[in-house]
C-alpha cells in the first residue's frame, strides 16, 4: 500500500475515533470519568509526539514526560511571576520545551539505541531534579499553583480533545509532506538516507524539536487543568506509560498512540481496585505486544480488515 494511502487511512480513522470520543459527554457527565478522559487525551498528545520520534524517525527518546514538565513549568512560572494570560502561557510553555528540545536534539543527533535512550533519560532526571530543588522559584515538590482556566470538566474534555485533534492534524500534514518521507527514510536506514541526499542532522534535530514542543504544549495545557505543577509530571514512570501506550496502540502509525493512550489509561483507572496488579497487567501486555504484535492494536486491526486493493505479488 502506498505510504500516502496508508497515512490518509490512519488519519481518517483517527478523526472518526475523535468524533466518537466527542460523543462521550452525552453518555456520562461523571466528573471523575471526565477527568480520566482528560488525562487520557493529555497522554494521547504525549504519545503522539513521542511516536513522531520513535515511530517515524527511529529515535528512542526517554524524555517525553520531562518535556511535558518543562512546558507545564513554562506556563506556570510565566503565570505566577508575570501574570501571563493562559493563551500566552501555552505559547511560552510550548516554545520553551521546543527550544530546549532543539538544543538537546542537536546534542544527541549522532547517538542511537541505548546511548540515545540513556542520554535522554539522564536529561529527564536532571530536568526533574532541577525543578524539584529550585525551591525558591518552583516551590519544589510542594508544587507551583496556577489558576485553572476553566472549572467545567466537560469544557476541559473538549479543550483537550481539540488540542489532540490539532496535534494529530499537524503531524498528518508534516508526515504527508516531503519531511515525512525523509523522517521515515532516516528511521529505516540513516546511511541510505544520507546516500540519497537527505540532510540527516537537520531533519533529526527538527523532529526532536517538534516532538518536544508538542509534549510541552500538552504539559502547559495540563498545568491549567490540574492547577498545580509539580516535578512528578517529569517522572520516568510517566515516560514508561507513554512508551507502553504507543507500543500497545501501534508505533509508527498516526492512530496507534491515540488508541493506546485512551485504552491504557481508561483501563488502568478501571483496574484501580486491583491495586499494584494493574502495573503487572500492563507490563505483561507490553511484553506480549513487543514480542508478538509489533504493529500494536492498530496493526492487528488492519491485518484483520480485508485489503481494499491487492498489490502485485512477490515473485518466487
Amino acid at each position: 500500500m502506498s505510504g500516502d494511502v496508508r497515512l490518509r487511512r490512519e488519519f481518517i480513522a483517527t478523526v472518526v475515533l475523535l468524533v466518537l470520543l466527542a460523543l462521550l459527554p452525552l453518555v456520562t457527565r461523571d466528573v471523575y470519568w471526565l477527568g480520566v478522559l482528560v488525562v487520557s487525551a493529555y497522554f494521547a498528545i504525549l504519545a503522539s509526539s513521542w511516536n513522531l520520534l520513535a515511530g517515524f524517525t527511529g529515535q528512542f527518546s526517554l524524555a517525553p514526560a520531562a518535556f511535558a514538565m518543562i512546558g507545564a513549568y513554562g506556563a506556570a512560572l510565566s503565570a505566577a511571576y508575570y501574570n501571563v494570560p493562559p493563551l500566552l502561557g501555552l505559547l511560552i510553555g510550548t516554545a520553551s520545551a521546543g527550544l530546549i528540545g532543539l538544543v538537546l536534539g542537536r546534542i544527541v543527533m549522532r547517538l542511537r539505541g541505548p546511548y540515545l535512550a540513556l542520554t535522554t533519560l539522564s536529561f529527564a532526571e536532571i530536568a526533574r531534579l532541577v525543578a524539584s530543588n529550585s525551591i525558591n522559584i518552583t516551590r519544589g515538590d510542594l508544587g507551583l499553583p496556577i489558576e485553572a482556566w476553566f472549572n467545567d470538566r466537560v469544557i476541559w474534555f473538549y479543550v483537550f480533545l481539540g488540542a489532540l485533534a490539532f496535534v494529530v492534524c499537524g503531524l498528518y500534514l508534516l508526515l504527508r509532506s516531503q519531511a515525512g518521507l525523509f523522517l521515515e527514510a532516516i528511521r529505516d536506514d540513516e546511511i541510505a538516507a544520507a546516500r540519497s541526499g537527505v540532510r540527516i542532522v537537520f531533519w533529526k534535530t527538527a523532529a526532536f524539536a517538534i516532538s518536544s514542543a508538542a509534549a510541552g504544549f500538552a504539559g502547559a495545557l495540563y498545568a491549567y487543568f490540574a492547577s498545580l505543577v509539580t516535578p512528578e509530571l517529569g517522572l520516568v514512570q510517566q515516560t514508561g506509560l507513554v512508551v507502553s501506550m504507543s507500543v500497545i496502540g501501534g508505533m509508527g502509525s498516526l492512530i496507534g498512540p491515540v488508541v493506546g493512550a485512551f485504552l491504557v489509561y481508561v483501563t488502568s483507572e478501571w483496574l484501580r481496585d486491583v491495586g499494584g496488579w494493574q502495573l503487572v497487567i500492563f507490563a505483561a501486555l507490553v511484553i506480549v505486544f513487543a514480542r508478538l504484535f509489533r504493529t500494536g492494536l492498530w496493526g492487528l486491526i488492519t491485518t484483520a480488515l480485508p485489503p481494499r486493493r491487492r498489490a502485485a505479488g512477490k515473485p518466487a
Binding site: 500500500m1 518521507l181 525523509f182 527514510a185 536506514d189 546511511i191
Partner: peptide, 23 residues
C-alpha cells in the same frame, strides 16, 4: 552498497521518491 541498503518499511515508489525530493 555491497550489502543492499533500502528503506524496508517504505514502499518501493517512496524509496525512489526520497532521493528525488532530497535532490
Amino acid at each position: 552498497f555491497q550489502l543492499t541498503r533500502i528503506f524496508a518499511r517504505m514502499n518501493v515508489l517512496d524509496n525512489l521518491l526520497v532521493g528525488g525530493r532530497a535532490l
